[in-house]
Design a protein around this nucleic acid. Sequence first.
DNA 1: CGCTGGATTGAGTCCGGTCAAGCCTTGTGG
DNA 2: CCACAAGGCTTGACCGGACTCAATCCAGCG
Lengths: 214, 214
Amino acid sequence: MTLAYSPDTAPTAPPIDNLMDRVGLRMTFAKGEEIFGQDEEADMIHSVVSGAVRTTRLLSDGRRQIGDFYYPGDIIGLEIGDIYRFSAEALSDCVVRVVKRSSLNALSGEGSLDRTLWEATRRELERTQEHLLMLGRKSACEKVASFLMDVAHRVGSEDVSLPMGRQDMADYLGLTIETVSRMVTQLQGSRIVEFATSRQFRVTRWPALERLAA
Amino acid sequence: MTLAYSPDTAPTAPPIDNLMDRVGLRMTFAKGEEIFGQDEEADMIHSVVSGAVRTTRLLSDGRRQIGDFYYPGDIIGLEIGDIYRFSAEALSDCVVRVVKRSSLNALSGEGSLDRTLWEATRRELERTQEHLLMLGRKSACEKVASFLMDVAHRVGSEDVSLPMGRQDMADYLGLTIETVSRMVTQLQGSRIVEFATSRQFRVTRWPALERLAA
DNA sequence: CGCTGGATTGAGTCCGGTCAAGCCTTGTGG
DNA sequence: CCACAAGGCTTGACCGGACTCAATCCAGCG
């Protein structure tokens, strides 16, 4: 991990980014590196600049649940009280902007900042609720279909490249790696998606995919 | 459903309640009645005064997921953008204090209110994340154990009475009613909990229950 | 007392997990 | 440039936990 002050200006989006630029630190993490750990003291908020990040939670016996995947522009570390409840790891080499909670509090009272962070928290909650519905009530096939649709939706383009491997997909969907693999094969068999490599695909039949995602 | 202005003072807790008292409406709902519906315009925030409430989400084919159960002091309707993503229904006869979003916005700038609502949103997010972990990675037995422990924990007392039936438990845990029933029977068999009636129980062996909840 | 709706129990099935090979891609060193 | 090793992905055979369907059971109540 390396770090540097970030006098460079933000290429991307809205208020929060500007703010985090002003007070934030820019850090880079190598693929697989831990950005913060479960049960550590939670005094930082993170914003993804480039690359992708996963948040994970471990059960005592090693079972793993992935909370969510984060892409440039997303904020991580909001969901938390005094202790991080998930750990965050770099899915690929990535750059993250980091701000101390205390700095934010100092800047608070500006109001717009509070509002922005609250908005972000609500978005996070909505995504978590969607995830919840999926884990509770969808079949393996529906889960994988939903997942691929969600990713394709985020990217927007025809060709999608997955930043995560099968094991990460499995731990996100509450399945095993083998089941994920089988469902992917099955979706390919029905000509709904087409995988060039195991991490590169395109949706060939959107309506069918949407129907399956339920 | 009946409603009345609430000049009566709050018996319970902190800042938010006082605020909602000042601008809120007091409404009572009969058991099973809908408090608000999925996909309706979300312009209200609700606070449970007495009784219990569930939030539910329906898949097109009728599968149901319960988001959470809410008890006196809890706030419902935060998680939402312009449209309610869950519907809320009264588990038992209950009283709810209701405030228009717009009224709150008008009162905003007081700061403390914003902060309180944000806090509530974060607590909601934490509960949802815990729920997520359970749905994704726990066995039927662990789910039921976790659930009973959670409820007992909330109540605090030795004897716990469940405000919800087996179907609601099942839809919360992502199981069927039969499986829930079997697991309850099994937990009773191992002398971990003891049910007086199907909705009335006490924990007889806390450590064992905690171990099972994982 | 019988009715009604929720809860329990049982038998059988199936989806997804487990275990075990193989395959394919990637990267490294000869 | 090829050989080989390593890791990730896929595939197959089998197993088991949770679901399905159906039959009771039981408590509350008219």
